[in-house]
Structures are given as C-alpha cells and as structure tokens.
C-alpha cells in the first residue's frame, strides 16, 4: 500500500514543436484520489492525454508500474490505465451492460465474448457505481449523471490500477457532481485504485481528494495534499485575479465588490452577516456604529422584524426581509456616507 504507481519526471507536453507546459514532475501513489486543477488553456487535457498515451510527449518521462507509458503497446497500456473522456460518444443501441462489458475487452478473446468471471466483474462494477438498476437501459436514455456512472463502471470493469477522468463533473448539476466525486472517493478507498481527474470544482476537490495537482500556465506542476497547499498559500498565486480572493480558512473564493459608500450598523449574528452581504453587493460597506451615530441600521435577531432603520435616533422602519430592507436603505440617500477613497474592495 502507498507505493507510488506513477511517476512523472521533467515532462514537457504539447503539440509538434509547441510546448504547452514544461518541467512537470509529480507522483500518483496507490489508492489516492488526485484532482488536477488549473485554468482553461493551461494544458490540463493535454497532460491527461499524454499520461493516457494518446499523444506523444515532447520530453521527460511518464513511468507507470516501472515501465515507460510510451513504450507500452495498446494491449499492455489497456491493463494499466482506464479512461473516462469528456467527449459525448453516441453508441447506437448500446445498453449500460454492453458498455460496461466492453470494459473487459483487454481480457476477452477474438470474438469479444464474456466468460462467467467477466460477467461477475461487470455486474460488480455496475453495482459499485449504483447503475445496476439501469443495466438494460440504452445509454441514450440516461441522464448525464447516470451516463457518467456507466462510463465509470466501464473503467472499473477494465480492472486497471489507475483510472483517469477528464472533467467527469463538467456537465452535471451540483447534486450529481457531489455524487460522482463521492463515488470516485469511495472507489479509491475500497479498491486501492488510484484515480486522477481534472476538474474545475475547487471546493469539492479540496474536501474529497488526497492530493491536488495545480497546473500553472506553462508549468510547473504544484502538488501536495490540499491542506499543505493551503499552508503554502498555493491557491492565491494560482488564481490571482482582480476581484477574486481565496480564503484559506474556508477554502472558498470570495468575490470582492467595489464599495462606494458606507453606513453605520449596530448588531451582530447571522442576520448581520446576511445584511452585510446583500449591501456589499450593492456597493455599500457596513461600519460599526458609534454611540453618537444618530443615523444607523440596527440588527436585532430576537425581534420579530430584525432589521430596523434609525434616522435621528428614531426608528422609522422595521423589516423582516433583507431584500426589502436593502432597497429601503439604498433609497435613504442621506443615510449613506459617500467615501472619499474612490473604490475600496471588500467582501
């Protein structure tokens, strides 16, 4: 357990003479779920295709099970790496069971017939991916999530130590994304297979993967456990962009809004956080009210209508809806203090 299944050393990838990314080094230990992250155009797909042996590398080494990937023939490679691609293939008349059965091709004879053992492996793969109840359905009749499960089951049936998935969650809705990621997590845990997937779902990747590969434009590849990368502030560098800030504590991005005015507020708690968020979106920053502020907002979470607007120490309005309250505040121009610094970014 935990030996290294795959090594990448000083790899350069690209097409012809054009290097997309160079100086890439990484490892895939056995039984780990690894997420490859990177902006569009950094060469995520090219890296995946190079590892799968679909395209030649421009330099460096990819070694799986002590052998160089590009020196293995199709048959040998098909027993090492199984892939799930982003391309939406339409296979006329293919049922889920047939597709998963094709995953056994590296092991079947000339006519491709499945023996008893193959059939058991196929059934088990469909069971593990939670698609067994649809085994006789046509692929064309499945939802996107179910399709993805069927293709993952195909990769499982191929019985390889490494499974590579190119953006398996790309076309899925949020619940289906979480489900697919959990399924992959579960496969890595129970089967000891290594899984490498590319994704844009940073939050899910941080929570579910053992290791992240961050591909920067042109390389190199920054790798490590999500926690270590958080410690090293790797994400800030990676996603440097105006108006986006990565919060190491939550592992989430924060969108910063330009603020042009501010208003005094008294109060705290969940209601306060919500009000701050809603006003921030409109360009209004909340500041803590001093005792002498006679124009202010008050948040009282115990009141029936928690949001109150005070003008000259008189409560002129109380609301229980953030939306209505925010509109009221924005209408009361006298309340808002226009800031001298033109644009201040804040959450």
């Amino acid at each position: 357990m935990n030996k290294n299944l795959l090594h990448i050393r000083n790899l350069s990838i690209g097409y012809g003479s054009k290097i997309v990314a160079g100086d890439l080094s990484a490892i895939i230990p056995s039984g780990e779920l690894i997420c490859l992250l990177g902006s569009n155009g950094t060469g995520k797909s090219t890296l995946m295709r190079s590892i799968c042996g679909f395209q030649p590398v421009l330099g460096g080494l990819i070694v799986i099970d002590n052998r160089e990937v590009h020196q293995l023939n199709e048959k040998e490679l098909s027993k090492q790496i199984a892939v799930v691609l982003t391309d939406r293939v339409v296979v006329p008349n293919a049922s889920v069971q047939e597709l998963v059965g094709y995953g056994r091709s590296p092991y079947t004879g000339m006519l491709g017939r499945l023996n008893g053992m193959d059939k058991i492996i196929v059934a088990r793969a469909m069971e593990q991916c939670g698609i067994a109840h649809k085994k006789d359905s046509l692929l064309t009749s499945l939802s996107d999530g179910e399709r993805q499960k069927a293709f993952i089951a195909k990769a499982l049936a191929q019985d390889t130590p490494l499974i590579i998935l190119d953006e398996p969650t790309a076309f899925l809705d949020l619940p289906a994304r979480v489900e697919i990621m959990q399924l992959l997590r579960d496969i890595a845990n129970t089967s000891g297979k290594s899984i490498l997937m590319s994704t844009h779902d940073l939050d899910l990747a941080l929570q579910l993967s053992d290791r992240l590969w961050l591909l920067q434009n042109g390389g190199p590849l920054i790798t490590g456990s999500p926690e270590d990368l958080l410690l090293k502030n790797a994400f800030q560098k990676m996603f440097q962009h105006k108006g986006i800030v990565f919060d190491n504590k939550t592992g989430l991005f924060k969108v910063m809004h330009a603020q042009h005015s501010q208003v005094a507020v008294k109060g705290h708690g969940f209601e306060y956080v919500l009000l701050r968020r809603a006003l921030s979106r409109k360009g209004v920053r909340l500041v803590k009210a001093n005792p002498e502020d006679c124009n202010r907002l008050e948040v009282n979470k115990d009141a029936q209508k928690p949001f109150s607007l005070y003008v000259d120490d008189q409560c002129i309005q109380s609301e229980d809806s953030v939306e209505v309250f925010v509109n009221r505040v924005l209408a009361a121009k006298s309340l808002l203090e226009v800031q001298s610094e033109s644009r201040v970014l804040s959450e």
Binding site: F54, E74, L85, P106
Partner: peptide, 19 residues
C-alpha cells in the same frame, strides 16, 4: 466484431481498451 464494437465507442476509447 470485437474491433467494431470498440470502434463504435470512438478512437480514444477503442485505443484505451487495447485496440
């Protein structure tokens, strides 16, 4: 027939399945 079954999945899947 085995080759055809795999070709129907597209060149990449077919090659990945050892064809």
């Amino acid at each position: 027939s085995k080759s055809l079954n795999l070709m129907a999945l597209g060149d990449r899947y077919a090659s990945n399945l050892g064809l």
